[in-house]
Design a protein around this nucleic acid. Structure first.
Lengths: 241, 241
DNA sequence: AAGTGGTCTAGACCACGGA
DNA sequence: CCGTGGTCTAGACCACTTA
């Protein structure tokens, strides 16, 4: 019933959503596994089925779960093909997302600059992890990335040799659920450094991508500044609703 | 109740949504005006309040209505500032959408080319309306647009002198509700023609925007190919969820 | 105080998937 | 066949706005 003292303003179905999200982040519910059915959940939590359904509606929109009539409700594997491409809008001429390979990758620990602090909502000097790498598609160099992440969210990452090249996979490893991202696009010309890394002529026009990825609670998780050299036919895709 | 023969598969709340959308497109409910309250609507349509609410939920996500607790539900004016910027992702350095002015504008009637037919789902040779124009922000030329629209959706537009420079305003004039859009971005260099129109040097790097806008029923309404010259600080903004 | 949308409940039936 | 999520109903109370 929960008819008792309601001091909190947050609606019940959002409180339920918070509890269920916690079960995912804590690892109690693992990606790919099914979760209790709606009736059982409602009994367990002491709320009505309608309230549970509304919580699940929210979580479905947040890409956290998938519901299939007749089968059940399942925790999403964020590394699955469709979800992994959520934050990659670079597509090939056939409309398919480009799957890229890592060419070079350096990882370093450091202290946040003023700019990194502003983007990641840290204080300047807070520990960060930086990655610089080149991604290629079909033997062509496409992306030169400079990434900064708060060390606090990825403890021990700097000492690991391997960093997954997709932010969704990295986040899932550290039990972080991603919410959204904002990307800003501009056009620039390749400086000599950039030109060398991407194997293009100096002054080649490039797409500059400045992206901040947020976790589901709205805190910044990654700041990526990338230079992108698009081959003929490739494009950056935006869907508006 | 509607317990009677249910041959249709489309859920009742979506049928209700369709009926309410029709009231907007037909002009029975005008932008800015309030609509009947949920209880009255449910009685009038012979469905439960919950079903009406679910229909309104959908319409709110489609940007068709705004609900305000204690006040009522209102039909959105698509030309209002926030909604008008829905399909314009070009922002200034302060994060605000650039509001632009029309510098030059030509409108012509014509017959669809193969490419226009493919983009607008017409047959080659079907009547189209074409617009070519330049937009500027703060005295700087920013956009060179080439637009094609199906004449059937905008009867008589070619003979009008004035074309609103925002697709949302134009659509509202002709009773079209817009659903979504897809934009494809690439980087190119200004050809001599483009350079002249935008008052830049030949070979200046430009952002090329290829956009198709769809009406709420999923049919193409406008195909725009634009060349964009971004000033320092301006950028194209993408939000991902 | 009256009227609105927002939340929550309890229970019914339907459509789908798998045993 | 059973269990699942999807739809639909009827009614209660809450929170907000306006008069």
């Amino acid at each position: 019933m929960s008819n008792m003292t309601r001091f909190t303003i947050r609606p019940l179905y959002l409180q339920v959503r918070d509890m269920l999200v916690e079960r995912i982040t804590s690892g109690q519910w693992k990606p790919g596994s099914g979760i209790s059915n709606e009736v059982d959940l409602s009994r367990e939590l002491g709320v009505s089925v309608g309230t549970v359904r509304k919580a699940l509606d929210v979580m479905e929109q947040e890409h956290l779960i998938t519901r299939r009539q007749g089968r059940g409700t399942f925790v999403n594997d964020q590394t699955s093909d469709d979800l992994a491409m959520r934050f990659n809008r670079i597509c090939g001429s056939e409309g398919n997302c480009l799957s890229m390979d890592i060419l070079k990758s350096e990882i370093k620990a450091g202290r946040a600059t003023e700019e990194e602090g502003a983007k990641l909502r840290l204080r300047a000097g807070d520990p960060v992890i930086r990655v610089r790498r080149v991604q290629s598609a079909q033997a062509k160099r496409v992306l030169l990335e400079q990434i900064a992440m708060p060390e606090a969210r990825f403890p021990g990452l700097a000492t690991k040799g391997h960093v997954p090249h997709r932010i969704v996979a990295l986040a899932q490893q550290f039990g972080i659920l991603l919410g959204g991202a904002q990307e800003r696009l501009t056009v620039t010309r390749a400086t000599s450094n950039v030109a060398e890394a991407l194997a293009v002529e100096t002054d080649t026009p490039l797409l500059e991508l400045d992206r901040i990825v947020y976790s589901i609670d709205g805190r910044p998780v990654e700041w990526r500044s990338a230079m992108c050299h698009l081959s003929h036919g490739d494009y950056y895709s935006v869907d508006m609703t």
